[in-house]
Computed example of a mutant assay.
Amino acid sequence: MITRSRAARAAATVVLAASIAVGTTGCVFITPTATLNYYDPSDGVGATVGDVRVLNMVGIINEDGHAISLVTAIHNNGRITNVTIQVDSDGEKQTITQPVRSGETVEFGSTPDAEQIVVLNPDVAAGGLLPVYVQQGDAEGKLLLVPVLEATGEYSELAPPAVLR
C-alpha cells in the first residue's frame, strides 16, 4: 500500500509539472515569432534590390523646405553593377546612376562633405514620405517611401543649403 501512494504521488507530481509547463509555454506554439519580422532599426528605410542593399535611406529637408538631401548607403553583394535612383525633383524625374563594385558600399549625404542627392521643390514637408525608386541592373526595382526629417540632432549638418530653389 505504501508503494501505491508513492506511485500515486509521483504520478500526480509529473501530471502537475507537465500541466504547468504546457500552461506557461503553450502560447509559444501558436504565436508567431516577432524576431522573424523584418524591420529597419533606424529613422530611414531599407530594401534589397537584386544583389544590392539600400541601407537607412532618409530625406533631410532644409529650413525653408525647398530642398531635401537623401542620406543613404548602398552595398553591393554581387558583381560590379549600376544602381539607379529616381525621384521627382522640381516637377521632373531626376535619375542618378551610380556604379558600385563588388563588396563596395557607396554613401550619399552621410557627412557634410559627402556627395549629396538633392531633391528640389519636393512637394513633401518634414514628417512626410518621399517616393524614391531604386533599381539595380536588370533586377526589378522597388519604390521606397522615404521618411523626410528636419535637420535637427544628428542630422543638423546634413541638410542641403537653404539657397537652393
Score class of each variant (00 low, 15 high):
residue 154 E to Q: 14
residue 38 Y to Q: 14
residue 21 A to N: 06
residue 153 G to C: 12
residue 55 L to E: 15
residue 17 A to T: 12
residue 94 Q to N: 04
residue 76 N to R: 06
residue 60 I to F: 01
residue 31 T to V: 11
residue 9 R to V: 13
residue 66 H to M: 12
residue 49 V to A: 04
residue 20 I to H: 05
residue 100 V to N: 06
residue 82 N to K: 13
residue 6 R to F: 12
residue 80 I to F: 10
residue 29 F to G: 15
residue 104 E to A: 11
residue 57 M to T: 08
residue 98 Q to P: 06
residue 47 A to M: 01
residue 18 A to Q: 06
residue 120 L to W: 01
residue 153 G to E: 11
residue 86 Q to L: 07
residue 56 N to R: 10
residue 131 P to M: 03
residue 79 R to H: 13
residue 151 A to S: 14
residue 162 A to G: 02
residue 55 L to D: 11
residue 35 T to C: 02
residue 6 R to C: 08
residue 6 R to Y: 09
residue 84 T to H: 07
residue 162 A to E: 13
residue 143 L to M: 03
residue 120 L to C: 01
residue 130 L to S: 00
residue 72 T to E: 10
residue 48 T to H: 08
residue 7 A to Y: 09
residue 40 D to S: 11
residue 148 V to G: 06
residue 138 D to G: 12
residue 165 R to E: 08
residue 48 T to S: 14
residue 20 I to Y: 03
residue 162 A to S: 11
residue 26 G to P: 03
residue 103 G to F: 14
residue 121 N to M: 06
residue 38 Y to N: 13
residue 53 R to W: 06
residue 96 I to C: 10
residue 42 S to G: 12
residue 65 G to Y: 05
residue 103 G to I: 09
residue 110 S to K: 09
residue 76 N to F: 10
residue 114 A to C: 03
residue 129 L to D: 10
residue 56 N to T: 08
residue 43 D to I: 03
residue 102 S to T: 05
residue 61 I to E: 12
residue 65 G to T: 01
residue 124 V to F: 09
residue 69 S to P: 02
residue 108 F to C: 00
residue 165 R to N: 11
residue 88 D to P: 05
residue 129 L to I: 07
residue 99 P to C: 14
residue 56 N to H: 05
residue 128 G to P: 03
residue 109 G to Y: 04
residue 50 G to Q: 03
residue 123 D to R: 06
residue 86 Q to D: 13
residue 6 R to K: 09
residue 64 D to W: 09
residue 137 G to E: 14
residue 143 L to V: 02
residue 40 D to M: 13
residue 73 A to P: 01
residue 125 A to T: 12
residue 142 K to G: 00
residue 38 Y to P: 14
residue 109 G to E: 05
residue 80 I to C: 13
residue 158 L to C: 03
residue 19 S to H: 04
residue 154 E to P: 05
residue 78 G to K: 05
residue 60 I to D: 00
residue 92 E to H: 10
residue 4 R to Q: 12
residue 18 A to K: 03
residue 52 V to S: 02
residue 85 I to H: 07
residue 73 A to K: 04
residue 136 Q to A: 15
residue 139 A to V: 00
residue 1 M to P: 05
residue 48 T to F: 13
residue 96 I to R: 10
residue 119 V to D: 00
residue 38 Y to C: 08
residue 126 A to S: 15
residue 88 D to K: 07
residue 161 P to G: 09
residue 105 T to L: 11
residue 103 G to V: 09
residue 131 P to N: 03
residue 38 Y to E: 15
residue 126 A to F: 12
residue 130 L to R: 02
residue 52 V to I: 14
residue 128 G to L: 11
residue 2 I to T: 10
residue 158 L to M: 06
residue 86 Q to H: 05
residue 25 T to R: 06
residue 165 R to A: 10
residue 44 G to S: 04
residue 156 S to H: 12
residue 95 T to M: 15
residue 143 L to Q: 07
residue 109 G to S: 08
residue 89 S to T: 07
residue 161 P to E: 06
residue 87 V to K: 00
residue 124 V to K: 14
residue 100 V to S: 10
residue 57 M to E: 08
residue 19 S to T: 13
residue 148 V to A: 03
residue 100 V to I: 15
residue 128 G to N: 04
residue 72 T to V: 04
residue 64 D to Y: 08
residue 141 G to R: 02
residue 100 V to D: 11
residue 147 P to N: 08
residue 127 G to M: 11
residue 116 Q to F: 00
residue 142 K to N: 01
residue 164 L to F: 15
